[in-house]
Simulated assay, not measured.
Amino acid sequence: MNRLARPAGRRGAARVLLAATAALALVTGCSGSDEGDAKTKSKPAAGSEAFPVSLTNAWGKTEVEKKPVKVATVSDGDTSIALALGLVPVITPDAEDGGPVPEYKQRAVDKLGGKKLKTYDDTDGTDYEAIAAEAPDIILGMNTWSMDTDYAKLKPIAPVVTYADKKHADTLTWQERLTTAAKALGLTAEAEKVIAANDKATKDAAAAHPEFKDKTYTYAVVHPEQITFMSHADQDPGVFEQLGFRKTDKAKSYTAEKNAVSLENLDELEADVLLITYPFGDNGLLSAGELEKNKLFQSLDVVKKKHYAVVPSENTLSSAVAYPDALSSPWVVEKLTPILADAVAGK
C-alpha cells in the first residue's frame, strides 16, 4: 500500500494506520497492476523530454503543454514524489500537523537547499484556495483517496496528474505512481534513477544479511479494537520478502478483511521472526508491556528465543513501512534491516 493522502490528512503514524484498519496493505508496498501507469502519449518536440504530454486519467484527460516548474501536491506521498525527483513543491498538505518532519523527508529537503516546505492545513481535506494562490503549473495527485471530490475543483487551477482508474488509488505501487508523475514533469530519467537506487539499497541489504533468506515472519499491528495479522497470504511481499523472508503457513488463514487475532489465539503469530508495532500507544488494544506479560504470548517459541522485535512508530517507521513511497523506501530498508538482524540473532 502506498502512503496515500488520508481522508483527513496524515495525523501521525497512529492515525495513518487507523485510516486503513480494515484493508491496510502491509508493510511495504501495494500490489502492482498491469494496468498501472496512466496511458501516456507524447507529441514530438525538441529536446530529450517531449511536450506537450497528454495523460488519460479516471476523470478525463490532463494536458501538460510545457515542462512544469511550479508543482503543488495534495498528499504526503505526492510530496515525496516531487522531492525524490528534485523538486520542492510550492505548497503541500501539512502531513506532520506542524510537528517534526520525518528524517527521510528532512534529508531530501536539506539536499534541495533546506527551505521549509510551505504547507496548508488539510484537517478538513484539500485546501483549494491555498493551492490556487500559489499558481502552480501542475498538481500531483497520484497518492490520494479523495480525487473523486478533488478533481473537478483542482482542474481549473492547473493540470492534475492522477491515476487512470479509480481502483488504482489502492493498487498502484509507488514505482508506478512515481513513473506516471515523472512523465508529466518531464523527469522520466530521474524517476528511473530513483527506482534503481531503491532496488540497489534493498539488494545490498539482502546480500549483507544472508541469514534472512527463507526465515518465516509475522508482522502484526496493535489497533484499538484488535491485534491485526498484517502479513496475510494475499499481502504483497514488500520489503520483508525482498530482503529474503517469507510468510508463515498461518498467513493463508488471514485476508485483508479477516485479519483479527484474538488473545486466545496468539499462537497464530508464531514464526521464525515476529514483528509487532504499537502505533496507537495507550489507545491500542493493549500496550507492549501488557502483551509481553500475557502467558500465551510468553509461551511462543519466537518470544522465548528472543526472535521478537517492536517496529517503532515514534520515528514514523511503522507508517513508512505501511505506506512506502519514492522517498521513504531506502530509509525503511536502512532502519528496518538492523531490527530484523537483531530479531534473527535473538538479541
Rank of each mutant, 00 (worst) to 15 (best):
V273D: 12
M147K: 09
L26Q: 07
D342A: 14
E241A: 11
L154W: 04
H307N: 14
L266N: 02
T162D: 10
A326M: 03
K183N: 13
K70I: 04
H223T: 01
A135D: 08
L187V: 08
T171N: 06
A343E: 09
F212T: 07
A201L: 11
T316S: 08
G244Y: 06
V161S: 00
K247W: 04
L275A: 07
E103D: 13
A345T: 07
A233Y: 06
D342K: 15
V321I: 12
V90C: 12
T144N: 10
K203W: 05
V16C: 03
D199N: 15
A14S: 06
L117W: 06
K252D: 02
V53L: 04
L336V: 09
L4I: 11
A205P: 12
F51V: 11
S33Q: 14
P330A: 04
S42F: 02
E264S: 11
S54H: 10
G289V: 01
T277D: 11
L274H: 03
K213R: 01
S287Q: 13
P7I: 06
K306G: 11
Y217F: 10
L300H: 04
H307L: 05
S54Q: 08
P210F: 00
S31T: 15
I139R: 05
K61T: 13
W331P: 12
R246T: 03
P100A: 04
V109C: 10
A25D: 13
S253T: 14
E314L: 02
T149Y: 11
E96Y: 10
F51M: 08
A164C: 09
V239T: 14
D124C: 01
L178F: 06
F240Y: 15
W59I: 04
A206N: 02
T119Y: 10
Y219S: 12
K166M: 11
V333I: 15
K203L: 08
D150Q: 13
E176P: 08
N198K: 13
A58Q: 09
R10Q: 02
K41R: 09
A158K: 03
L243R: 10
H307A: 04
G289Q: 08
D272H: 09
A13L: 04
T21G: 00
D94A: 03
A288G: 01
L269Y: 04
T255A: 07
F51S: 01
A191D: 11
Y163T: 14
K118M: 00
K347Y: 10
V311L: 06
P136C: 07
I81V: 13
L286P: 10
L274I: 00
A50G: 01
A130D: 15
W331V: 06
A95H: 09
I276V: 15
P100G: 05
